[in-house]
Design a protein around this nucleic acid. Structure first.
Length: 369
RNA sequence: GCGUUGUUGGUGAAGUGGUUAACACAUCGGAUUGUGGUUCCGACAUGCGUGGGUUCGAUUCCCACACAGCGCC
């Protein structure tokens, strides 16, 4: 069955809802941890669940290369393969158009995109049809359309050309899509041009997807520009479908996104930062490797309810990072993901109580310091 | 005692008669937004064992001394 979005309550544009999937019902706004290679780096499925995660994200491009989608299909699909029974969303490989296609003009064609494998340098060619075929086999709950994530800055001409091509790719992908148990999201592009965002959103919505995402953000633009991109896309999206802001983000971005009506976020930030000893706290990010934590025997945050904060001190975590012990990254991944997910829980409650803006301002007042 | 080799930052070490003494590790910071697990970027010797000398100029050449290794009585 396809996913179904159910709106529960609304506070201005901020929305609280439920997402019904084949692998359970989850609440929105939600933050989705990224598990590119069929695992959220360093964490077991039990730990992912314990942290309150709704959906996790995995990646078509990476699983295509290794182990390859047929292996996953033989295992019985992505859920069985990785032993995760919650909802999974797969990114289409569109972001790799941004990060791996070196020569945009030459590598990106109407038919598809030429890549060099980041593993062995082999030449690869990914098309909308192939991305759908791989995702159909992976059998995630939500598949993403194959798009081009446009760099920033980009000229109006290039953005227009690319945005139109992404629309044609979306249509081709949808036409070849072949898995009745899987949902498919369309992706709004249009770069930083309001006119193109509107065009992309309206044309994408016409194709009638199961959900819509806003792509092409967090690619180097300033925050003001990013929030404008969201504003200029989201007003054309239907109320009865989930909205997903791709690749975002930082705590302040979640607040700004939810305020504008975003339901879903994903970001590598909590896990990547964790591997490099950076921790989210209510008072901003801290670097646990700093010498000042050498004898700090308090938790990262005394108001955090995560496993790590309940059992370990900053001094111990610092020791693990300085000694390059993997447990540090693991414990901090738990904390950082929990931090963002707890934020979404608090935001949901604030929406229900009609005081989202107050929550946001209180949060930011502390966090900015 | 004689001969010989060596003495460069917290560590291992390059190097040159002439503007800022290489590099690595350690240390100390910073970055990270549809993954970079081992990543990226900064800072870090006012000084080359000590004291003299030669020279316009010495960490580099010379002498003495100190210390360390090796060899010989």
């Amino acid at each position: 069955m396809k996913i179904k979005y159910e709106l529960i309550s609304q506070d201005k544009k901020a929305r609280r809802g439920l997402l019904h999937t084949n692998h359970g019902t989850v609440e929105t706004p939600m933050f989705m941890p990224v598990g590119t290679l069929a695992n959220v780096k360093m964490l077991t499925p039990e730990e992912i669940k314990e942290v309150g995660s709704g959906v996790i994200l995995s990646n078509t491009y990476h699983l295509w290369l290794r182990p390859d989608e047929d292996v996953v299909a033989k295992a019985g699909g992505l859920h069985k393969f990785m032993n995760y029974d919650g909802p999974i969303l797969t990114d289409s490989g569109g972001f790799q158009v941004f990060s791996l296609a070196k020569n945009k003009k030459k590598d990106i064609t109407e038919e598809g995109v030429h890549f060099k494998s980041h593993i062995d340098g082999k030449s690869l060619f990914l098309t909308p049809e192939l991305s759908m075929e791989i995702q159909n086999k992976l059998d995630s709950d939500i598949a993403m359309s194959f798009d081009e994530c446009i760099p920033y800055p980009a000229t109006y001409e290039y953005t227009k050309e690319s945005t139109e091509r992404t629309l044609r790719w979306a249509k081709r992908g949808k036409d070849s899509f072949n898995n009745p148990n899987q949902s498919l999201f369309g992706i709004v592009q249009g770069g930083a041009y309001p006119k193109l965002r509107k065009y992309s959103a309206e044309k994408t919505v016409e194709m009638d997807f199961d959900g819509y995402s806003i792509g092409g953000t967090s690619v180097g633009e300033d925050k003001k520009t990013m929030y404008e991109m969201v504003d200029n896309a989201i007003k054309y999206l239907p109320e009865d479908k989930p909205r997903y802001l791709m690749g975002v983000g930082e705590p302040e971005d979640l607040l700004e996104g939810v305020e504008r009506g975003v339901d879903m976020f994903d970001c590598v930030l909590p896990t990547r930062l964790a591997r490099h000893a950076n921790a989210f706290t209510p008072y901003g990010k801290i670097n646990l490797k700093n010498a000042k934590y050498k004898e700090d025997f308090t938790p990262i945050s005394d108001t955090c309810d995560c496993y790590t904060c309940k059992h370990y001190t900053k001094a111990y975590l610092r020791h693990l990072f300085v000694a390059k012990e993997g447990l540090g990254g693991r414990l901090l991944s738990i904390h950082n993901i929990r931090f963002l997910i707890k934020m979404t829980e608090d935001m949901r409650n604030a929406i229900s109580e009609g005081n989202f803006i107050e929550y946001k301002e209180q949060f930011l007042e502390k966090y900015k310091n």
